[in-house]
Simulated assay, not measured.
Amino acid sequence: GAGCFDELLAGTTCKVTTINAAHDPNFGGISPEPIERNYGNSQRLLAKHPHDLCLVTDGDADRVGGMDGRGRYLSTHQLICLLLRHYIVNRKATGRVIKALTTTSMVDRMCEHYGLELVETGVGFKYICAEMLKGNVLLGFEESGGIGFPGHVPERDGILAGLMLLEMLAAEKKPLSTLLAGLAKQFGPHEYARIDTHFPLEKRGALMDFCKNQPPAKLLGSKLKDVKSYDGVKYVAENGSWLMLRGSGTEPILRIYAEARNQADAWKLLKLGVGITEKV
């Protein structure tokens, strides 16, 4: 994606500053994954030289991440919800919304509010692609920052996602902070957290069976509403909080995901998830 935004936005009123764009197989010693821990250099630059938005892509530019103009981290879940609202409110788009299991439940509330069909898939963009190929899709997305668009290739595209975020800012004429505050006010706060922990591959099956067959009665004091076990195991509470355990397909790594109304509660759920692993 190096240089793409410069070229695509040439001749517009948008001023582009590009960093970390050198063609380097080692990416300058920085991991190319668009997640917060890799943003340090860019955050320091933005603190000194504010912009309206910082778009971040990975090595092959199929995923998008971001920061606001002063270097504050934007989660992929926030970007997804901003884009979903933009497509519904500004572009007047309709269709099915496709999301992976590990994506924020704010999407569920938005779809319910706007009367849109929501399809939830396993983790991996190939599952979202399969739904996109069936047609009548508004957007498809996953927690890692992969977003697919209608009328385009049935794949994730970080460049197009970035352009759509810029289109959103142009249409709204409001700062990101105002748009995000509006989402939280309308659909409630949603705070996400995740940890990756070592867990033996040979015990993975037993853990998933335990999670499926012996779910907790409550999450954060709210009764359990649903247990989804078609890709890992996901617990969903009546208040919208959720906890999910899912193993890597190739490594002895267990990923634990959670979402709640605030970060403190999200981390309580992660602690609960770790406790579950210790019972097997």
Rank of each mutant, 00 (worst) to 15 (best):
D60M: 00
T18N: 09
S105L: 12
P154K: 02
R72C: 02
G124R: 06
I147G: 03
P50A: 05
T102W: 14
V97F: 15
P34T: 02
S75P: 10
E36F: 11
T121P: 07
V97G: 14
R44D: 10
R63I: 01
Q43E: 01
P32R: 00
V107Q: 12
R70C: 13
G95L: 06
T121Q: 04
N90M: 12
G115Y: 14
A47P: 01
C54L: 12
R85P: 04
G148S: 07
V107L: 13
A100G: 15
G69R: 06
L45S: 03
M132K: 02
H113G: 05
L53A: 11
Y114G: 05
V123G: 05
Y39I: 02
R72W: 09
G158L: 01
K99D: 01
D62T: 08
H51N: 06
L79Q: 15
S105W: 13
L46I: 06
M132N: 03
N20T: 05
Y73C: 07
R70W: 07
A130T: 06
G59D: 10
R109V: 02
R91V: 14
D60I: 04
G162N: 02
Q43A: 03
R96L: 11
R37G: 00
L160F: 09
T102M: 15
D58K: 11
S144F: 01
V123M: 04
S75L: 11
N136T: 04
E155A: 09
H77P: 11
K92P: 03
G65H: 10
Y73N: 09
G28T: 02
I19H: 11
A61K: 11
N26E: 13
T76P: 11
L46W: 05
E33Q: 01
A100W: 02
L53S: 07
I30T: 04
L160W: 05
T94Q: 15
M132T: 06
R85T: 07
I147L: 05
N136R: 06
G148W: 00
H113Y: 15
C129H: 09
V153A: 08
D62M: 10
A47K: 04
N38F: 09
A21D: 12
M132L: 09
D58A: 07
N38H: 14
D60F: 10
A130Y: 02
Q43D: 00
D60E: 00
E33K: 03
R70V: 14
R72I: 05
K92W: 09
E112W: 07
V56F: 03
L55E: 13
V97C: 14
I159Q: 08
K99L: 01
I128A: 04
N38V: 08
N90V: 08
G140P: 01
L138H: 00
T57L: 15
K126T: 04
L139K: 10
F125K: 00
K126W: 03
G122K: 15
